[in-house]
Design a protein around this nucleic acid. Structure first.
Length: 268
DNA sequence: ATGGTCGCCGAGCGA
């Protein structure tokens, strides 16, 4: 079973790019981020025509996440628990009925968190929101782990886990994507017992999932690895491959992110 | 390079 994550940076602007990639690579499950549209505006028919069930948690202009699945989905739950006042559409979860072992999939768009500081030097609310959101994700992962089932937390984490996951670490030193507090929260998630799929399959440095639109970042391979699929121990036991569809970034009208995917060997 | 580039929507923000 192939499970992918793709921050499309507007699903409407990216529809042709997205459907072409879906047709070519045929993933079973896809977590999408940054839809930038409400549920009613999601191009549902075009996706369903390719054989996917669709679960959307949209938002006007900002954020928005979805799960596409060739298998039926049960228990579809938008929102990350822990703060009922949070209106930002950044999380959706579903139980994927594979026919044998069900796989729980959480699709997430973790807050960017910049700027880190306000003008007077205090921590900016955007950064504290990011850290608080990560605390909620950690708590939720702890609860999912008690179920002792295979699950995948896939999405745009807006976290560069290590120096080797970016082109120029010094440029990111004080950025919300690389600051120590941010990376510590990500480590905390990993240390619960989750597996970073990409690092379980690859040791080489400088493999990226995002290249900025600005300043020729793509041409210079000035990228960062911020899209991740984290696995519960039961899912990690099924992991057979993980890779990044880098070539997508060089196509016409691309997203600034590219898809990352895993292959899970589900037992009969 | 206090710029650069996208996408939202129709000015300026978010990334």
């Amino acid at each position: 079973m192939k499970i992918a994550s793709f921050n499309v940076n507007s699903v409407k602007a990216r529809l042709n790019n997205l459907t072409q990639w879906l047709s070519e690579t045929n993933p079973d499950v896809v977590c999408l981020q940054e839809l930038k549209c409400v549920d009613e505006a999601f191009p549902r028919e075009a996706i369903e025509d390719l054989g996917y069930n669709v679960a959307v948690h949209g938002q006007k202009t900002y954020n928005g996440v979805a799960i596409l699945s060739k298998f039926p989905m049960e228990d579809v739950t938008p929102r990350l628990p822990g703060d009922d006042s949070d209106e930002q559409a950044r999380y959706i979860e579903a139980l994927i009925s594979t026919g044998t072992t069900p796989i729980r999939v959480g699709g997430l768009y973790l807050p960017n968190g910049n700027p880190v500081h306000t003008e007077d030097g205090a921590l900016h609310e955007k950064y504290t929101y990011k850290l608080a959101w990560m605390d909620r994700l950690i708590k939720h992962a702890e609860i999912l782990l008690t179920l002792e089932e295979p699950f995948v937390l896939a999405g745009d984490y807006n976290i560069i886990p290590q120096a080797e996951d970016c082109h120029k670490p010094s440029a990111w030193k004080d950025d919300a994507l690389f600051r120590q507090e941010s990376r510590d929260k990500f480590r905390k998630l990993i240390n619960l017992g989750l597996t970073d799929s990409f690092r379980a399959c690859h040791t080489e440095p400088n493999r990226y999932t995002f290249w900025d639109y600005q300043a020729g970042a793509w041409q210079k391979d000035n990228g960062i690895r911020i899209d991740h699929l984290l696995l519960s121990p039961q899912a990690a036991d099924m992991l057979s491959a993980c890779d990044v569809d880098k070539e997508i970034r060089g196509r016409e009208k691309p997203s600034d992110h590219v898809p990352i995917w895993i292959e899970l060997d589900i037992p009969e």
